[in-house]
Design a protein around this nucleic acid. Sequence first.
DNA 1: TAGTCGTGGTG
DNA 2: TCACCAAGACT
Length: 372
Amino acid sequence: MVEWSQDQINAFQTTLLTWYDQHKRDLPWRQDHDPYHVWVSEIMLQQTQVQTVIPYYLRFMKQFPTVQSLAEADETDLMKAWEGLGYYSRARNLQRAAKQVVNDYHGHWPETASELQDLSGIGPYTAGAIASIAFNQPVAAVDGNAFRVFARLLEIDDDIAKPQTRKIFETVINRLISKERPGDFNQAIMDLGASYMTATNFDSSNSPVKAFNQSYLDGIESKYPVKTKKKRPVPHNYFGLVIRSSKGYLLEKRPTSGILPNFWMFPLYDQQALIKEKADSQAQLIQRLEKQLQADYQLSIQLHKVAGKTVSHTFTHQKWLITLLEGDLSATADLSYFPGKWIQTTQFPKMAFSKVQSKMWEAYQNQRLSKK
DNA sequence: TAGTCGTGGTG
DNA sequence: TCACCAAGACT
């Protein structure tokens, strides 16, 4: 790892901040330093690209302009506002933290990174970002950009996938950060990481800090950052049930924990759980599912495969392959044993649907359309 | 600690 | 189709 003298640190700060003053991105959450604005944007930006966040942020601020309005928001409206952004626990934690600020802090934000981390959904990165940007506290905000940029600049060989590596970077950056303009320093690193120093297709030779970039000067920047690989998503085969009646479609609320908690979806059944012998055909599995629905919920439904491609959806660590099955049921069918309810399509736009549910709904509609 | 938690973009 | 990435937090 490269060590810088105080003179080099000063020169780096000046170079970085001069570049930032001239070339910083004009982003909606950079209009002011309101902690509410900084906070909401930082939460939305977690693992999410800037261009994806912008429209969500603008709509969110119109709908929930203050921390008080967010604290009082209806959860359905909140989830609808977050629909499609993913990592939905962020939205729930956001409202939890809003209530903490309103109730525990009487609407007055804590200003140190340490205090901010006590709020739901605010970890070490976000605490540093809010403290530095909104409250001018000289603390590092170590996100993926900071890891990447400083690993390259200083040839830091520690694996950034390991949690313990964070404190190494925090120590380094806290020594380098501008004490006068910590928020701009942190944001400049992010802009650098999103432009000249991206993960792939970086352009170090035109970077404003190329003279400080040791790995570039040594011609070994592709080594950095050091990061161990992730596991590939595990495939899961499901049947997705599209059951219709005059009362609408049968939707099931997902469990309160796990993936997509509390989301309403077409009922999913793991095909693996229906397999008795390896040689079972899918037709046999469908027949077995019909019997199971009868036995478990007293629902007799004839299921038919929906023509067309199976719906595929990849999460970070799971890959779902869903075979759609359709069937009709009487509106008077007894649902008292079934963990779901009829929902009219007119209600769909008010509900927050996950991407995978939207894909199933779309695939089903396309098939019906092509039939007629 | 390592696994869990979404989605969209890119090569 | 796949691997990997993008302003991480929580358990």
